[in-house]
C-alpha cells in the first residue's frame, strides 16, 4: 500500500503531464475553452430550477445555489468515475508498448475532472455571493472533504477500471448505475424531503454524505456532520486498500487483455 503510494509519487511528473494533455486536448480549438466544463452543470441546474422551482413549486430559498453546490462535485465524481472505468482499456496502446505503472491511468481521469471542479469553485462562490449569501469559515473544511472524495472516487476507479478489462459489460453498467445513484443522492432535493422510512438510502449512501457536506459548507454555512465524515474517511481508506490489491492482482494481465 505504502509502496503503491510511493510509486505514484515517483511518477507525479507523468501524471501531471497526462492530466495537462487531457485538459489541453479537450478544449483545444474551442471558443469557450474550459468554460465548457461549467456549461453542463449550468444546463442541468437550469432544468432542475425549471422543473422543481417553477413547475412543481418546491419551496426552497436560493434553490439554484443549492443545486449547484451538489451538481458540481457530483459531476467530478460521475465523469471521473466513468472516464476512469474506461481508462485502462482506453490507454491500451500505451500499456502494451511502454512499461508504466497502470494505476496512474484511473488517477489521471479522476485528476483531470478534479481540475474542472477546482476551476468551477470560484464561479460557484461568485454565484453564492450574488444571491446575497455569505459563506464563511466552514469553507476551511473544503480541502478535507475534497480529499475524502478524491480517495473514495479513486478507490472505486481502481476496482472498476481493472475489472472492466475482462468484463467489458461494466462500461455499460457503470453509467446506468451512476444515473440511479444520482437520483438517490440529495442533490436536487434537500435531505429533509426524503420520507423517514427511506432515510436509510441516504444514511448508507457515501455520496449523499459527501454532497451534504458540500451543501453544509457552501449553502448552509455550517459544520458538516463530523461522525459522518469520519465514517466516510474510514470507508475510503478500506476501499483504497481493496482497490489497490484488486488492481495489483489483475494488472499483469492488462498488457495482454486490453
Amino acid at each position: 500500500m505504502i509502496n503503491r503510494l510511493l510509486q505514484i509519487y515517483r511518477y507525479r511528473a507523468l501524471i501531471q503531464i497526462l492530466i495537462i494533455r487531457e485538459l489541453k486536448a479537450r478544449y483545444r480549438g474551442t471558443f469557450l475553452g474550459f468554460l465548457w466544463s461549467f456549461v453542463n452543470p449550468l444546463v442541468l441546474m437550469a432544468i432542475y430550477v425549471l422543473v422543481f422551482s417553477i413547475y412543481l413549486r418546491m419551496d426552497m430559498e436560493n434553490y439554484p445555489v443549492f443545486l449547484l453546490c451538489g451538481i458540481l462535485p457530483w459531476a467530478w465524481f460521475s465523469s471521473g468515475l466513468s472516464e476512469a472505468t474506461l481508462s485502462i482499456i482506453g490507454n491500451g496502446s500505451l500499456i502494451k508498448k511502454v512499461y508504466l505503472p497502470s494505476e496512474i491511468f484511473p488517477l489521471v481521469s479522476i485528476g483531470s475532472n478534479m481540475v474542472h471542479y477546482l476551476l468551477s469553485i470560484p464561479i460557484l462562490l461568485i454565484f453564492i455571493v450574488s444571491f446575497g449569501m455569505e459563506p464563511s469559515w466552514p469553507l476551511l473544511l473544503l480541502p478535507l472533504i475534497f480529499l475524502i472524495q478524491f480517495v473514495f472516487t479513486y478507490s472505486l476507479a481502481l476496482i472498476l477500471s481493472s475489472l472492466a478489462v475482462q468484463f467489458r459489460d461494466l462500461l455499460h453498467i457503470v453509467p446506468n448505475f451512476l444515473m440511479i445513484w444520482f437520483f438517490l443522492t440529495p442533490i436536487f432535493y434537500p435531505m429533509t424531503l426524503v420520507p423517514e422510512k427511506y432515510r436509510a438510502l441516504v444514511d448508507f449512501n457515501p455520496m449523499a454524505q459527501l454532497i451534504m457536506a458540500y451543501q453544509d459548507i457552501f449553502f448552509y454555512n455550517r459544520i458538516p456532520s463530523i461522525p459522518g465524515l469520519a465514517v466516510l474517511t474510514g470507508l475510503s481508506c478500506v476501499l483504497l486498500v481493496i482497490g489497490f490489491s484488486l488492481f495489483e492482482a489483475r494488472k499483469d494481465l492488462f498488457a495482454e487483455e486490453v
Binding site: R21, K24, A25, K97, V98
Partner: peptide, 25 residues
Amino acid sequence: ALLELGAGFHPELTGRENVIINGII
C-alpha cells in the same frame, strides 16, 4: 523500449507538447 514511435502522442496537441509528453512517458 522503442516498441512504438510516438507513444502517447495526441493528435490535437502540437509537436512540441507531444515531444514533452512522449519524453516523460
